[in-house]
């Protein structure tokens, strides 16, 4: 359904992605692994239309996403939870979620569903996002994305800096989304944390996809992890 075909992406004169290709299907969790600076975040930003392609094509159900203005990409059902959460810090929890609801035109039931996944946010609805704890901010970033009623969700290090109980909650929500037939592209540094939930793993090295393997296969043969991540 979401297909990236040989994309080249650059920040001004510095090219970061080189003929990168990957795809993800509904109800599948694809994990992107790679060293710092390999191009994982750039890949997600390119899918969202936040960085222009120099070459290549990104398609969602056959429709070329890279020909759309950036603000139209989320309206096609693609949601983005960026690294560092990037909430609208001075807006309340409720207002952050409303921005998500505006994207999809979804109503109260979608908001209620998001709050049912993260009940703690229910108590914080009037609170400014910047006053939440790190874990609560991550919940809100996920809830805001869920309010867009995504068919594909891009998660950039969603468990970064979180305590184990919070990491576990975020993982459970990701699995629930997969069960609801949402496609998930997950960027993570913690390999162990994702192998148990990912279906496939794509290694990105020097801005291109070096290898794609089944997660189960990787658990049996971790030498690839050492090869691409050096850990």
């Amino acid at each position: 359904m979401l297909t990236i075909n040989k994309i080249d992406v650059a920040y001004d004169q510095v090219q970061v992605l080189f003929e990168l290709s990957l795809s993800v299907s509904r109800g599948e969790i694809l994990c992107l692994l790679g060293r710092n600076g390999a191009g994982k975040t750039t890949t997600l930003k390119s899918i969202m239309g936040l960085l222009p392609l120099r070459a290549g094509r990104i398609e969602f159900d056959g429709e070329p996403l890279n020909e759309l203005a950036a603000h139209l990409v989320p309206t096609k059902g693609i949601a983005y939870v960026p690294q560092g959460r990037r909430l609208f810090s001075e807006l309340s929890v409720q207002q952050n979620m409303e921005i998500g609801l505006m994207t999809s035109g979804a109503g109260k039931e979608t908001k209620d569903y998001a709050l049912s996944l993260f009940p703690r946010l229910q108590e914080r609805l009037k609170q400014r996002a910047e006053t939440l704890s790190g874990g609560e901010q991550q919940m809100l970033a996920m809830a805001r994305a869920i309010c867009t009623k995504p068919e594909v969700i891009l998660l950039d290090e969603p468990t970064e800096g979180l305590q184990p109980s919070m990491t576990s909650l975020i993982r459970d929500v990701i699995v629930q989304m997969k069960q609801q037939n949402v496609a998930v592209i997950l960027v993570e540094q913690h390999v162990d944390a994702v192998l148990s939930i990912a279906d496939r793993v794509t290694f990105i090295e020097h801005g291109t996809n070096a290898d794609t393997v089944q997660a189960a296969q990787l658990q049996e043969n971790p030498s690839l992890i050492q090869q691409y991540l050096g850990v």
Binding site: M48, L50, G100, M102
Partner: peptide
């Protein structure tokens, strides 16, 4: 950038 990523023109 996040505004754009949430459908705001």
């Amino acid at each position: 950038e996040m505004a754009q990523a949430h459908g705001i023109d």
